[in-house]
């Protein structure tokens, strides 16, 4: 299918012909799309469509058998450890917080590889997300919405070029989802590109500039929220099956 053009000639993220198989099972087949600078792209699809596998391929956690991933025009790092230095941050579905560490320590971990005292940067991002009062609390002791914000703060503290959000709205109430949408919009406005996997359709329609729809590991639709909403293939594969709203 034709891939719509992105705002810049060199996209932040370029996925071309990506193929991933686990044993004999094809999980991704010829997946191609881009994310431009400052653009927010949502990756949606039914459970098992391969959304998280796309993230894992971008992060070097799974090795594709076909195609490739380029970040800022260069091949994506083969090792997940090099992601932050390539300008990529990711949140996880399971949050992956260090439960016994304080909120501040959690946010300091991605900065610990570079010299100097980064406490001021960490506290600044905590203040931005309304977490200042919780800085010294153990992350594991916080309610779920606050823990989600800590995960987001940890991803944003390195000022990434590309932010990968894995189901950021899952488990949140309406007010928290609105606040999250505001934060994503601010991040994108600052020039950071965002790729978000999410089931919450209203959130996706609200924040995404473009939507890529996956089904059985293949891209079945790609376009603006308005274009995708009316796509019969999407309705049949995803929206028509009673997706969460």
């Amino acid at each position: 299918m034709t891939i719509p053009s992105t705002p810049d000639a060199v996209p932040r993220l370029e996925i071309s012909g990506l193929g991933v198989a686990f044993g004999g099972l094809t999980v991704l087949d010829d997946v191609s799309f881009t994310v431009g600078r400052g653009e927010t792209v949502a990756l949606i699809g039914p459970n098992g469509a391969g959304k998280t596998t796309v993230f894992n391929a971008v992060c070097g956690l799974v090795r594709p058998h076909a195609g490739g991933v380029r970040i800022n025009g260069r091949p994506a790092p083969a090792s997940a450890t090099r992601l932050p230095s390539a300008g990529v941050s990711r949140t996880l579905q399971g949050l992956g917080l260090f439960e016994r560490m304080t909120v501040l320590e959690n946010v300091l971990v991605p900065l610990s590889g570079t010299r100097g005292d980064h406490t001021a940067e960490a506290r600044a991002i905590l203040a931005r997300l309304g977490l200042t009062a919780l800085a010294e609390r153990p992350a594991g002791a916080l309610p779920y919405p606050e823990r989600k914000r800590v995960a987001l703060a940890r991803a944003l503290v390195t000022a990434p070029d590309l932010l990968l959000l894995d189901e950021p709205a899952g488990g949140l109430g309406a007010a928290d989802i609105d606040a999250l949408a505001g934060t994503v919009a601010e991040v994108a406005a600052s020039g950071c590109s965002v790729l978000v996997v999410e089931h919450h359709v209203d959130f996706v329609m609200g924040v995404a500039d473009r939507i890529v729809v996956l089904d059985f590991g293949r891209v079945i639709a790609c376009g603006t929220p308005g274009e995708v909403r009316g796509d019969p293939a999407v309705e049949a594969a995803y929206l028509g099956l009673g997706a969460a709203s």
Binding site: C59, A80, R90, F98, L108, V109, P110, S112, R154
Partner: peptide, 18 residues
């Protein structure tokens, strides 16, 4: 901090550059 992070969540730590 990196030693503790790597000890308790190695996969997450890798994604954070540890």
């Amino acid at each position: 901090l990196k030693l503790r992070a790597a000890a308790f969540a190695p996969e997450t730590s890798r994604l954070l550059g540890v």
